[in-house]
């Protein structure tokens, strides 16, 4: 195991998220706790973002419930490798439901970034895209560079889901860009923007 290899990955997490969200349209976004929530917020704090400050292992399941409730909207889950590893079973549950509007993007820096950059299992043997594929998610891949990202961006944004892309990103400490952290506010803001007057019931 080369535990330092992710220091040299060419893709930077915030440019990846910027590219995914720059054409978001009516997309609904769930961001896993820690750096992915800060990355999504760095692009812009939007009502139709649901950035998590906890619920580790739950981002994909939240995205699944949202995708099933809103079949006409693209639902984008953006999370990290540590968060994804805690909820691997949710990939199996997604595959069984097979929502055509759900896309999952993992920003894989092979580290637990919020706790001191300890390595995760993806720094060793674990290949998240293979896990997703073996679970039965039809479109999966690992992206390691700018050409790769360019070529799969249309799939991430629009291909019939569920789709899963693990994007290897450089392990780096970036300035925090924090979204609001009151969960009730985030939930009410999201529901008001999505459901309008129906949000009250």
């Amino acid at each position: 195991m080369d535990s330092n290899r992710s220091l040299h990955y060419p893709l930077h997490r915030r440019e990846v998220v910027e590219q995914v969200l720059s054409q978001r349209g009516t997309m609904l976004v769930v961001a896993g706790l820690g750096a992915p929530a800060w990355d999504v917020s760095a692009v812009g704090d939007e009502a139709l973002n649901f950035p998590l400050w906890g619920a580790m292992g739950g981002a994909v399941s939240i995205g699944l419930g949202l995708a099933l409730a809103q079949p006409s909207r693209r639902v984008m889950v953006i999370t990290g490798d540590g968060e994804m590893l805690m909820g691997l079973g949710s990939l199996a549950t997604v595959a069984v439901q097979s929502p055509p509007n759900l896309a999952i993007v993992v920003l894989d820096n092979e580290r637990y970034g919020e706790t001191g950059m300890q390595t995760t299992h993806t720094a060793d043997k674990v290949d998240l895209a293979s896990v997703a594929s073996a679970s039965g998610i039809p479109t999966c891949g690992t992206i390691k560079d700018h050409d790769g990202l360019r070529s799969v961006l249309p799939q991430i944004l629009a291909e019939k889901g569920p789709v899963f892309f693990n994007i290897k990103v450089c392990a780096e400490n970036l300035p925090l860009v924090l979204p609001p952290k009151d969960g009730a506010f985030l939930k009410d803001r999201f529901r008001l923007a999505l459901l309008g007057n129906n949000a009250a019931c």
């Binding site: 292992g57 981002a59 949202l66 529901r191 999505l194």
Partner: peptide, 16 residues
């Protein structure tokens, strides 16, 4: 089961 707690949070965000 914890998947279900998260799933139903997402469902509620989407109006279900």
């Amino acid at each position: 089961e914890e998947e279900g707690v998260a799933l139903l949070a997402g469902a509620w965000l989407g109006g279900d």
